[in-house]
Simulated assay, not measured.
Amino acid sequence: MNSLALALPIPLQSALLLVASNVFMTFAWYGHLKSMASKPWIYAALVSWGIALFEYLLQVPANRIGVQALNVGQLKVMQEIISLSVFVPFAVFYLGQPFKLDYVWAALCLVGAAYFMFRS
């Protein structure tokens, strides 16, 4: 293992891998809506599966590393917070969706979820 990974706290290592995983996941799940809108769904599905492979190559180690310091509930809530943090800029800047206050309210709900999952 490289020395940088060893210097980072386990939850941060997991979070960074989950951020990268979520970028792939978001493109796999939603990228085809813009880039392959005129193609048959089967092409979009095959491309999405290919992209999702890279998601899983990052997500599985993220969870295996993270479970050394966090419980699975904490990992799941962290993943959801990261997912929304990646999805909102993707939706606004890549898909051209308008920013809505609903994103803020959802984020506040996740702050509450994080509070309950990470409190002692």
Rank of each mutant, 00 (worst) to 15 (best):
S21M: 01
A113C: 11
V72M: 15
Y103S: 09
S35I: 13
L70H: 02
Q59M: 13
G50C: 07
V23H: 00
E80A: 15
P98R: 10
F24P: 02
K76S: 15
L58D: 08
L70S: 01
M117C: 12
R119F: 09
L58E: 07
W49G: 11
N22M: 04
V19F: 13
Y94S: 11
N22V: 05
V77R: 04
M25G: 14
Y94P: 04
G73R: 02
V88W: 10
Y43N: 11
N71E: 08
Y103L: 02
G112T: 12
L18Q: 14
L46D: 05
V104P: 03
M117T: 08
N2M: 07
V19Y: 08
P40C: 01
N71I: 08
Y115Q: 04
G96N: 06
L75C: 02
L4G: 01
L16R: 00
V92T: 06
V111K: 02
A37Q: 06
W105A: 13
A69M: 07
F90T: 06
A52T: 07
L75S: 06
A107P: 10
G66K: 00
L12C: 00
G73N: 05
L101W: 12
L108M: 10
A15L: 07
A114V: 10
V104D: 07
A106Q: 08
I10S: 00
V77G: 03
L16P: 00
S120T: 14
Q68G: 05
L16Y: 00
V86L: 02
V92I: 05
S48C: 03
S38F: 07
M25K: 02
V67R: 09
A62H: 03
Y103V: 07
N71Y: 05
I81G: 13
W29Q: 10
A106W: 03
M25R: 02
L46F: 13
L75E: 06
S35P: 05
A62T: 07
W29C: 04
V67K: 09
F99H: 08
I42S: 07
I42H: 12
A91S: 15
K100E: 15
W41G: 11
Q68D: 03
L46C: 09
L101T: 13
V88I: 15
M78Y: 01
L53C: 14
I82W: 10
M78F: 04
L108I: 11
L53V: 15
R119T: 14
S83N: 14
A28C: 04
C109I: 15
V92S: 01
V111S: 06
C109W: 14
Y30C: 09
L101F: 03
S48R: 02
